[in-house]
């Protein structure tokens, strides 16, 4: 007796993706790629909220969420995957509840810990795409090193007050890594965090939606991604800039792994 493979989609699952399937650039094959994708999202805060919500709604099959923080009331002004009645819960558990309400066909794995040098490699392993939505530069460097070592593309977003940056780090495919672009961690006090400096509530929505769109494109193979392009958005003045970036010929992080670019 031949074994029939389990169908990729449940019968009542497909209608929710009808508007994706109608797009020439996604279609049935792209939607199947989304369903098979395994995405790691580091940080379930301001950027992580819209990223997770749009990726879950889009039908990304497996989402791993890493965050060691608890939901606090001051998060709710912008971290829209969480809710008033989940203040005090682990952010990863609150996010899992929020995402289950959007799309029960997504397998969400909550990891209630801080990604650090000891855990980064293990957490990155097995994912097709990693999304950096964390809130500090130390974690960003640790995550970049792990993604670079394993050749996994790293879609990275960061925000400050009214501004945000997003790009796709991918030295295995010719784009710079995070350390090529930002090798130096600023001295303490130069780059204040959201708690100190404040952040406009809709800002992570703008940048997070760009990140979700870039993730969907990358997985589905649609359009042109942000490899080698840093997108900067200034919400206070309503302006965007795009800066061409390239690998650092002598980058100590990606050079030894993916070769110096000379």
């Amino acid at each position: 007796m031949t074994k029939i493979p389990a169908p990729l989609f449940a019968e009542d699952e497909l209608p929710r993706y009808a508007r994706h399937i109608a797009l020439r650039e996604i279609g049935g094959p792209g939607q199947a790629r989304l369903k098979r994708a395994r995405v790691l999202v580091v940080g379930a805060g301001g950027l992580g909220s819209p990223v997770l919500m749009y990726l879950a709604a889009a039908g990304v099959g497996r989402l791993t969420i890493v965050d060691d923080d608890l939901v606090s009331r001051s998060n709710l002004q912008r971290q829209v995957v969480h809710a008033e009645d989940r203040v005090g819960l682990a952010k990863v558990d609150s996010a899992r509840i929020g995402l289950a309400g959007l799309n029960p066909y997504v397998a969400v794995e909550p990891v209630p810990q801080r990604l650090d040098a000891g855990s980064a490699a293990r957490l990155v392993t097995g994912h097709d795409l990693v999304i950096d939505a964390c809130d500090n530069l130390e974690t960003r460097h640790v995550l970049n090193a792990a993604c670079t070592a394993q050749g996994v593309p790293l879609l990275s977003g960061a925000i400050s007050q009214w501004e945000g940056q997003v790009t796709l780090y991918d030295p295995a495919r010719g784009a710079p890594c995070f350390a090529c672009l930002f090798p130096v961690i600023p001295a303490p006090g130069l780059a204040p965090d959201c708690a100190e400096a404040g952040v406009m509530g809709a800002l992570p929505g703008i940048l997070g939606a760009i990140m979700a769109a870039e993730a969907i494109k990358e997985i589905a193979g649609a359009g042109r991604g942000l490899r080698g392009r840093l997108h900067i958005h200034d919400a206070l003045w309503g302006e965007s800039r795009e800066i061409a970036v390239r690998r650092d010929a002598h980058c100590p992080v990606c050079g030894p792994v993916h070769g110096e670019t000379g």
Partner: peptide, 10 residues
Amino acid sequence: IAFFPPMTGG
């Protein structure tokens, strides 16, 4: 000429 540092927040 644009001057831009890394942003930290998420």
